[in-house]
Design a binder for these strands. Structure first.
Lengths: 253, 253
DNA sequence: CAGTGGTCTAGACCACCGG
DNA sequence: CGGTGGTCTAGACCACTGT
């Protein structure tokens, strides 16, 4: 197993991929040390800096952890984490093993409510935003209602048929208009289904729902979407991985 | 502004702290570039590697972002993120601006249910775990019910009065027994209050609640706690920050 | 083109851990 | 003590961005 020094992929990424593959395949087992930095340095014939860069990369994904003076160890396998990772409904459902579907309930231009203006940090007040309401399915069962408000710097036409064909709004935006959802802030809360929502989701009114409100940022770091997603609590939950983080403070002066 | 080369704090952390302070104080403003790597190199009289280490450190906290060929920029201020950051109820409430309180409902040793055994990855079947049930308050209003199951390799005595005095279970474990909660996995879902829970939380039965189930890992990477936390939905929500992450794949062979 | 961040080298010394 | 990861240097060349 060697790396290709002529590849356009940097060496540290090739080495990181090698390490990931060793762990995924089970060659290197959980809680056991992987080869030391000096061993990997010799194996791949690169400098130790490059090895450390690769190890840091893999450690950031949580696949390995490092202990000073002891070694680098394979971490326990992670739960799939839908939180932290920004994805579309479509790929979220696929990764959960369900087939996504949708029914577009409405697609109109509206004057935004204050809540939406605030989330999108919209400056111009007399601006119209695109409002898309969709019922979403997992394996042909209704699972969620999405109410999205979209605002773009440039003029963008999105029609119901475009969206129906594409399936995923994020794919459509990226492929056709070069808008890449890069980051998002979410709040997660519990709420009760009102009669309209209950009818759409095929549950009794008052049933608990998971309400996820997301503000999405593109590669220009500007918010372009505010969306409220109402999920049936019996069919959807979120996963998160938490860790302690230090924050550096300046001591004296 | 200089750094102390003799300090036990590494240079890159001192430089990272300097950068954070510049941003916190508003000297460097959002979306504007900060000094380039070469400028910082000259300013602090360190190698570029050290500067890059500091910048990477700050970038990982999300305070700045980097754009190839353009520069390093101050990111928009982040929402406080209670998710990702593992904290105790006590410090979580304080960071939300409320005064935490608790009432210990029960503290007993029990034989764990299968769900708990699985979460704690308990090997020995005839093991007893410590079960602590608490009602938790924010500003003297009930906000949450915590049902925790604790299992330790070593023998640990925890009494109700210890816990009552300390306030925070995590502080008690860390200070008295050297057990540091380092990481955790959580699932977040919505549920309805049953009559008992409703009475404790002072809401109507059937009211939506946020159910957070956490498995907590100590510094030995072994799970030591499984806890279910039921929050009043009208007084508590979670925050999360999502971003796209690439996962390296090995191409051919 | 000049300036930015991205990758990489071949060393060095230190701090920590275990036997 | 030898082996581990942690910090640091003083360079080099490349890839990307703007003018």
């Amino acid at each position: 197993m060697h790396i290709d020094p002529l590849s356009s992929i940097p060496k540290y990424k090739q080495i990181a991929a090698f390490i990931q593959q060793k762990i995924d395949s089970g060659d290197w087992v959980v809680y056991e040390p992987i080869p030391s930095e000096r061993e990997l340095e010799a194996k791949f014939r690169v400098s130790r800096t490059t090895i450390r860069q690769a190890l840091e990369y893999v450690a950031n994904t949580g696949l390995v952890y490092r202990e000073h003076g002891k070694g680098t160890f394979v971490a326990r396998p992670k739960e799939q984490h839908s939180l932290e990772q920004l994805t579309s409904f479509t790929s979220d459902m696929r990764s959960r093993g369900s087939e996504p579907g949708q029914k577009i309930l409405s697609l109109t231009y509206v004057e935004p409510e204050p809540k939406v203006i605030q989330a999108l940090k919209a400056e111009n007040e007399r601006m119209e935003v695109l409002r898309i309401e969709r019922l979403r399915f997992a394996d042909d069962e209704p699972i969620s209602i999405h109410r999205a408000f979209l605002m773009f710097d440039i003029d963008i036409e999105i029609t119901a048929s475009d969206l129906q064909v594409s399936g995923s709004l994020y794919s459509l935006l990226e492929r056709e208009h070069g808008i890449v959802p890069l980051e998002a802030d979410e709040t997660i809360e519990a709420t009760a289904a009102n009669p309209d929502e209950a009818a759409l989701l095929n549950v009794a009114p008052g049933t608990p729902l998971l309400l996820i409100s997301r503000t999405t940022y593109s590669q220009t770091r500007k918010p372009f979407e505010y969306v409220e997603m109402l999920y049936r609590a019996d069919r959807y939950k979120c996963f998160a991985h938490l860790s302690r983080k230090e924050r550096i403070r300046i001591v004296g002066a």
